[in-house]
Amino acid sequence: MLPLNEQLPVTLLAWSAILLTAFFLGLRIHRTLAAEQQKQNSVVELVHAELPQTQCGRCGFPGCLPYAEAISGGEPINQCPPGGEHLILRLARLLNEPPEPLNPRHGTPQAEPLVAVIREPECIGCTKCIQACPVDAILGSAKTMHTVLTSECTGCDLCVEPCPVDCIDIVPAASQWTQRPLNRYAISRGLV
């Protein structure tokens, strides 16, 4: 045990170290929170929240977030076919821009929801489609049969091309058992 007059500076040093650490830690947390807030409020985040998150790449960008970033950088808002007319209207209102019809160069909105179906006897279990599916809607493992989780599939078409034996079909979701409300699909996209 040190005598009292020697104990004092040690205690002071310890306390000041603790306080300093706490201060810098608090500053760090504050900065992170502020940055988070800013990110949420940023145009990119707002636009991204509106996009349909199909991740199909038909807009010409690899996914919805890159397109959202491109829109905030001045790219036209009429390039997302899965979102359809309603998306363009919403974006136009959000960004205070005049709405334009969908650019046909990027495709037309599908009139009904589609899903992929793997013709299972023909599947060779190459796992290529699993790697392609952006929403993890395909189930299977190497050298075993693969199948599509219909309720998660967005019908984006990305798994068709990589399949070496061409055993994936894109079919109307109505022909499959799915929980999604099909009848109002077209209405909510302004197609009728």
């Binding site: 996914g63 952006p134 699909y185 909510s188």
Partner: peptide, 20 residues
């Protein structure tokens, strides 16, 4: 109906984003 649908669509798209 459209409002109800777009709310449902939005929650679905959030799920999709999570999976992505």
């Amino acid at each position: 109906e459209i409002l109800r649908d777009s709310a449902a669509e939005r929650s679905e798209s959030q799920l999709r984003q999570a999976r992505y």
